[in-house]
Design a binder for these strands. Sequence first.
DNA 1: GGCGTGACTATGG
DNA 2: ACCATAGCCACGC
Length: 114
Amino acid sequence: MDEKERELFRLAVYDVVSIIPFGRATSYGAIAKAIGCSNMSRHVGQVMSRCNSFENRIPAHRVVNNQGCLSGKEAFGNSNEMQKLLESEGIIIINDKIQNWKKIFWDPLQEIQL
DNA sequence: GGCGTGACTATGG
DNA sequence: ACCATAGCCACGC
């Protein structure tokens, strides 16, 4: 992968994350699949860990793992910040896990086909 | 090129 | 539901 491809990958991830609706969340794997890189879920995570969500206005808190767990909360300034942001959108979290995950989950592929 | 690492996942016990 | 394993692939050393 050369530098140009990495950049495109990063921007594609940003694009998808940016259109996650308020009060919903999605997973790394779903994003990877949506941008045509189904086996790159770990790299979506890597992009998010460096995205600087606050400055870039990216709702990084709406991206969790496939089971609805807040695996990336440590990347926010305060480890409670991610949960706080999600709860401010009406999402219930217990033990770092989003409750009613099936309902909260938003699949980018479904949105793209509309 | 080898080896460990990581905001991951699918699967099996 | 929880833990262990094994694939995954770019990065850094």
